[in-house]
Design a protein around this nucleic acid. Structure first.
Lengths: 159, 159
DNA sequence: CCTAATTCGTTAGAATACTATCTATTTCGT
DNA sequence: ACGAAATAGATAGTATTCTAACGAATTAGG
């Protein structure tokens, strides 16, 4: 098989493999968090807030890796579920700080083992070296394509 | 930083990195296909059909890596865009075969360079060995978690 | 041959995430 | 101090994907 044929095969492209892996991760996590009333969309935000409570929505968006309207929707949902409260900043009234409720804080100890388990399952059969390279490569890919988004909005500008 | 802290950090988990990379891929491709009237959802199906035209919807779903209702929606959209036609099977009237229109076939030569370009951008700075391991590791992760989905529907059944 | 189970596609309804646009607030240049 | 620009968040509308449930067609068991 030539290089061209290899990359033309949808089931071998890095993009395809990344999509399949992402969806599998999301599903595996959701299966474990849903019984505790935490959806996939809520999970990602809780994880970041467990690390640093009281972030503004802007900061939260950046750390979770979502756009702000997505954060607004997720926070509405988290508020309805009594997992967070919004509190307007006093020194800058545009800002809103997001704080975990005791219920959400209590979920930390319950749900974090799920991540560990999903990671263990996901990485079974890979050596520590391979895992390190996987991590490095995914980081690089994300960075490379983020740059692309900034400076290559059309197909004609490169190639 | 301890192992526990490392894995607790959302921005270092393989799941997070995979999500960021996937979204970046999807966006980079969409930017290049959209000017030709092809959305992200349509793109994945066209790629598979370019390789093997006339598949049934079931087969198509399996190869694209989507559930069947998703395929139905994508095909409705592809049909509206005049990219595919559905044709009922004569020997098994449950089945529907999906065929590319000449318009869609013509897009192959136009859009495939986009994949090559996105892949080149995405993988810049990685060695061939690292890319090979990335590919292998993503495949393994997908397989590991697919198995998990089958036999570990709740968090209590393992751990 | 006929009932039961399986297979294929579809519909309904929900969750997640996006772009584009809006309002409110703050900051900065003159 | 005042108008322009920037920043924070929210809203509207759309796209993608899922699970659950259903209808139609086919296959298999008795």
């Amino acid at each position: 098989m030539s290089d061209a044929e290899f990359y033309a095969d949808p089931t071998h492209s890095i993009g395809y493999l990344t999509r399949i892996a992402f969806r599998a991760f999301a599903r595996a996590l959701e299966v474990r968090t849903a019984p505790h009333g935490v959806s996939a969309g809520q999970w990602r935000f809780l994880r970041v807030l467990w690390q640093e409570d009281g972030l503004t929505q802007r900061e939260l968006s950046r750390r979770v890796g979502m756009r702000e309207p997505t954060t607004v929707i997720a926070l509405n949902s988290l508020e309805r579920s009594n997992f967070v409260v919004r509190q307007k900043s006093v020194e800058d009234r545009r800002k809103v700080h997001v704080y975990l409720t005791p219920e959400a804080k209590a979920l930390h100890a319950v749900l974090m083992p799920a991540v560990a388990q999903v990671n263990a399952v996901a990485l079974a059969g890979l050596t520590p070296d391979e895992i390190a390279i996987l991590r490095k490569a995914l980081t690089q890919v994300g960075r490379n394509l983020a740059v692309d988004a900034d400076d290559a909005p059309s197909m004609d500008s490169a190639a």
